[in-house]
Design a protein around this nucleic acid. Structure first.
Lengths: 174, 174
DNA sequence: TAAAACATGTAAGTAGTTACATGATTCC
DNA sequence: GGAATCATGTAACTACTTACATGTTTTA
């Protein structure tokens, strides 16, 4: 999975601008994918050259002009290929766990703060994601599977928060 | 967190070769960090030039020669700086969740297979990590915090497997 | 009046992977 | 005899981020 696959997927739902794609990443994919404008815009240009998508420039009043991208049949085919290929293995990069691993060097107080910080961070992410899900459910624009993927994120956060809280109680008694 | 920080951490425990560092990544960090030889060896060379570590060539019988790296005081200082800086935010990249998100396009059968596959994959990772933990506990070479970080991984896998199994039952009735 | 939202793009740099290249020894 | 383990390294490439660059309108 790279930025191109994901962008193709979003454009297979409907035409979108680079700006809208980025917003979608933040709203739906925040906990398992991200890409910056510095990736999105060059990728769109590259994909247009490869004829996977087409660009339409749209003039707007009171706002900057925008480029709306539409997927082509070749683009759709490419996306199908990605979708039916086996999912690549998940990659987690956790600086929190790395810090914890070296806790002996950092000292008990530092580790306690680390745990407290991680719990707070995860709680924030959890609430944020929950609010997003609520807002999206009101809008009714959510497929069954989109909802599932968000709920998996929620369950994962929840489980981590619970486990970390237990650890804190057991190991540091507070 | 980058490869340099982590390597510095491992060398702060004891002198090691590039090969041993890679093996350690696999044994301890498999679920929250990884780096290939193509990263490790060039990084070691760069760090030696920066005088964060020193190299000692060791001749061996019946095995290739090896380069044993030792951390310098400057390297230790650099590692402390990393360790006391706030932990960078965790990054997850899940192609499984991306596939699930686009389940509507892929179809119900494909999604069911996807879930089944993910459960199997996670179960494998869980058992693997559990075996690693057992072996390491026998060896008694584990600090309290090292054990904690592995247990967090185990709890995370466990929670995901359970949640995915429930999803499968509820949504696909099998 | 300042920040957020809307909107696009580039240049320079960072950080990594994959594949190749080599070669002995030990275990199955 | 073949796979796994031990052991190091490079070249080409991929994929991304960060910072810069610009400018309007709406909202708090």
């Amino acid at each position: 999975m790279n930025a191109q696959d994901v962008i193709l997927g979003l454009l297979s739902e409907q035409p979108r601008t680079g700006y809208e794609i980025k917003r979608h990443f933040e709203q739906f994919f925040s906990f398992f994918f991200d890409a910056s404008y510095g990736t999105i815009y060059p990728t769109l240009i590259k994909m247009e050259k490869a004829e996977l998508i087409t660009k339409e420039a749209v003039r707007q009043e009171g706002k900057p002009d925008k480029n709306v991208y539409t997927i082509t049949p070749a683009g759709r085919q490419r996306f199908e290929r990605y979708l039916h290929a086996p999912a690549a293995k998940e990659v987690l990069r956790s600086d929190f766990l790395m810090h914890l691993y070296f806790g002996q060097t950092a000292g008990e107080e530092a580790v306690k703060d680390l745990l407290l910080g991680e719990i707070e961070a995860k709680r924030g992410l959890y609430e944020d994601l929950q609010r997003k899900l609520e807002r999206l459910e009101e809008g009714k624009a959510l497929t069954r599977y989109q909802k599932m993927s968000i709920q998996i994120g929620l369950a994962q956060y929840r489980a981590t928060i619970d486990h970390l809280n237990e650890l804190l109680k057991e190991e540091f008694g507070s």
